[in-house]
Design a protein around this nucleic acid. Structure first.
Lengths: 351, 351
DNA sequence: GGCACTCAGGGAAACGTTTTCTTGGTAGTT
DNA sequence: AACTACCAAGAAAACGTTTCCCTGAGTGCC
């Protein structure tokens, strides 16, 4: 069942079938109807390979992520795939290690398969990628709100809002010494989150203590390591905000190993609101960022570049907001060098 | 830079270039060398679309999974992709909801893109998929050791070993009332795990208590629900084995909400050894199943079908084994109706 | 030494589309 | 009424490969 069969059945030429099914050019109304009927009756579906060969467009979108292990990514990938499929695209997945060689290799693969566009998430130095893709005029969108170059499309994320809420919440509880465990600062999104934290601290009229911001790596292990470092300090913090949930879970685990726990000994706040966060013991207070929103925005942006006609989705930034669960509470005297311990409070209401 | 350029540069015909690069037919040694040199110099890479169009082989392998949210899957996907790329294949991801319509749709997509093979994981009723793929002679491998039909390739998993170790470990600690939270029994792999549990119970000379095996759904929420159900029973268990880690984490969380905890009030064992399992509080004792092994076996099997020449990987089953952490201990009197409480023991050594 | 068989390698067809080119007909304008 | 402009639809080219078919040369056997 190829285009010739359809043409024969509808009694038209193959050019006409192509025109009808692609909605290009103008064809007689009645003729178009005949074609559509034939298409339905034969259950005709054009061969993507042949189509791609001549038109140059593959209807495939590349999705490049690193650290697929982060549970935020599967959720994102699933959403992205959903949007792509709904619009007749296929997604080519590349989960690469974060080194230049692997990334370059993945880009090659994408280029070779003639992807119509690429969405990337969580790269450190995306410059070389961008360049190679740009020289081939492949539309590109960066998914974590990090416009490396002003002319690159990016999904904008309002990190400030959620992180500000987080810090304000801690300050309300009486915390003064609030630490931040950042992601790898070569990642723009990690920088943006750290900057948001700084902004939040200042807007609460606290002063930044550089010894309290630790560079982590967005992994469970990294969270543990950062917390170990913080616990060893002369003046340890009473609360920790983490750049993602994975590290927050690592922090929780580190406390456990040290015979302490949240929120009694330390308040902990994560970022992402990964699904599993609410199942932590105790459930993790965190800042929610909707992966569906990000996926939708990314795909819409890409599609806008690919199909000149496609409506550009509303371009307002993805919002973030604090979700109160049970890892935050009042600071305890134990860590406040001689100040009297306040009574332990009941953990915040679970969401 | 297409095949013609290479042919011109090497001073041969395009047929020869094709023969050389594909290793088919026999060509003069010196001539082949000239071709390879030209390929290198021009950095020629054949167009996959054109190649697929005429040869019918796309060098794409479909990977169909449901519930990508389960953290075991990303690890699996990453591995699988790695093996595929190493062998010059691309992977087309389809993460479908587990309903017949979505699955059928995904199969269509695969067929339309002319995948060379399909690996599926975690479907309930895979029969319809298998049929449609079989009628198109697409190689297929089922990744969770569930040979729905004897003639379908499947990665075999030795569930018995690990689960038997788990039950024996609990019995050693003194448990008699051991519950099992299964996956959805429409999934063959879930059935296999449950059967392994039954076998293990019998081999420990205990008798199956049907009220202690609950059908779950392999989700966090399902684990909670199952545990709620178990806690409400007249004679609740002192230990629970779960069909996957996600449900075990759900069980842990349910205990937490009931003001209890593992292992003091209940011993809990998971299955999969997802990376995050060791970061649970307390770290989850679980049965490890290597996703790298599964991915490797699945890909090798597929490749064997696709390329008649490819070596069939050693076909011994994937092993499973108990990893001792800190969610198991002696049963407490609290749940043993009037029997004296044994002293609490130090949790097992952490791995 | 001649004939048949094998095989390396070139030419061309084929894969299933999209897209450009061409043609024939119709309508509009002078 | 004739000429031009336009438009719908068919014919054919193009996309970049693989593969089939054929030719010519070399070799072995009789």
């Amino acid at each position: 069942m190829d285009i010739r069969d359809v043409a024969r059945r509808a009694n038209v030429s193959i050019s006409t079938v192509s025109r009808v099914t692609n909605g290009k050019g103008t064809v007689n109304r009645e003729m178009a109807e005949r074609v559509w009927r034939a298409v339905r009756e034969l259950n005709y579906q054009p061969d993507p390979q042949a189509r791609a060969l001549v038109s140059g467009r593959s209807h495939i979108i590349g999705l490049m992520v690193t650290e697929i292990t982060n549970p935020f990514f599967p959720e994102l990938i699933q959403r992205f795939e959903q949007f792509a499929v709904e619009s007749g695209y296929e997604v080519l997945l590349a989960s690469t290690p974060n080194d230049a060689a692997s990334i370059a290799m993945s880009v090659r693969r994408m280029l070779q398969r003639k992807v119509d566009g690429v969405a990337v998430m969580m790269f450190g130095r995306e410059a070389p990628i961008l360049e190679e893709l740009a020289t081939h005029a492949v539309p590109l969108v960066v998914m974590d709100g990090a416009p490396a170059f002003p002319k690159i499309d990016a999904v904008r994320v309002n990190y400030d809002e959620g992180i500000c809420q987080a810090v304000a919440h801690l300050v309300d509880l009486g915390h003064q010494a609030i630490a931040f465990v950042s992601g790898p600062l070569e990642q723009a999104s990690a920088r943006l989150r750290r900057d948001a934290f700084e902004k939040a601290i200042r807007s609460c009229h606290l002063k930044m203590r550089p010894d309290l911001v630790i560079e982590g790596d967005h992994t469970l292990e990294g969270g543990m390591a950062a917390m170990t470092q913080l616990l060893a300090q002369a003046h340890p913090p009473t609360a920790v905000v983490c750049s993602n949930d994975l590290m927050a879970i690592g922090v929780l685990h580190c406390l456990f190993e040290a015979g302490k726990q949240a929120p009694a000994d330390l308040s902990v706040i994560g970022f992402d609101d990964v699904h599993i966060a609410q199942f932590m013991l105790p459930p993790l207070t965190t800042v929610r960022m909707s992966c569906a929103d990000i996926a939708r925005a990314a795909f819409a942006t890409l599609r806008h570049r690919i199909e000149p006609g496609a409506a550009r989705h509303a371009t307002r930034p993805v919002e973030t907001k604090l979700i109160l669960r049970q890892t935050t509470g009042r600071p305890t005297g134990e860590m406040l060098d001689g100040i009297q311990k306040p009574a332990r409070i009941k953990p915040a209401q679970r969401v």
